[in-house]
């Protein structure tokens, strides 16, 4: 099994978060291949909405940064873990920056699925999604539903499914590994 873990924690998030993700990655690597990307340390730019990835260089972004490494890992993974502390009620802008760049992995053509318009596949298969969050002081059940529903929608457009949404504070590394790897 291949995992891609996107760590969207901004600098200053704290050692508990990074230790947790490092431990999670380490236990996954005992039996699986796992790529852990600390997005804060990478050269990553925002999507410009130029659509060159759809009509000039299909499937490839024209921005010259480190996103290709992430994209290659994501599309070849069995599971992608979107990991981020909640900030202002949603995952970080750092993680959203990379999520926007995933658009290169789907096709601009639209098809009807479940009675709605959605992007067609570019690749034969897409990874499942997992979401790992860290609560803010003001996080409530409503926030959790909002974030979960948005990731569910993202999964629909990416021919995927959300396998789990977990909180660092409430989930041991072993439990997260079970949710991610099923062992």
């Amino acid at each position: 099994m291949r995992l891609t873990i996107l760590d969207g924690a901004p600098p200053g998030t704290g050692t508990a978060w990074s230790r947790y993700l490092n431990d999670f990655t380490a236990v996954c690597r005992r039996e699986h291949a796992a790529d852990l990307f600390h997005l804060a340390t990478m050269d990553l730019r925002y999507c410009r909405g130029c659509w060159n990835c759809w009509w000039t260089t299909p499937g490839e972004c024209v921005i010259n940064d480190e996103a290709d490494t992430v994209l290659r890992s994501v599309i070849n993974a069995d599971l992608v873990v979107f990991a981020s502390p909640l900030i202002a009620g949603f995952t970080s802008s750092l993680l959203k920056k990379v999520t926007d760049r995933l658009i290169v992995l789907v096709h601009p053509y639209i098809e009807l699925r479940n009675g709605e318009s959605h992007h067609m596949k570019r690749y034969e298969r897409y990874p499942d999604f997992g979401v790992l969050l860290q609560k803010e002081a003001c996080t409530d059940d409503d926030d959790v539903r909002i974030v979960s529903d948005i990731y569910d929608r993202l999964a629909v457009n990416f021919h995927s499914r959300v396998r789990f949404v977990r909180f660092r504070e409430e989930t041991t590394v072993g439990e997260l590994r079970h949710a991610a790897c099923g062992i």
Binding site: Y46, G49, A88, S93, L102, L154, N157
Partner: peptide, 19 residues
Amino acid sequence: PLYTDCMPGIVKAFFEELF
């Protein structure tokens, strides 16, 4: 514009600053 079913990353960064 809706970007990957949500606000674009630059807008989320702006929300974080407003927060």
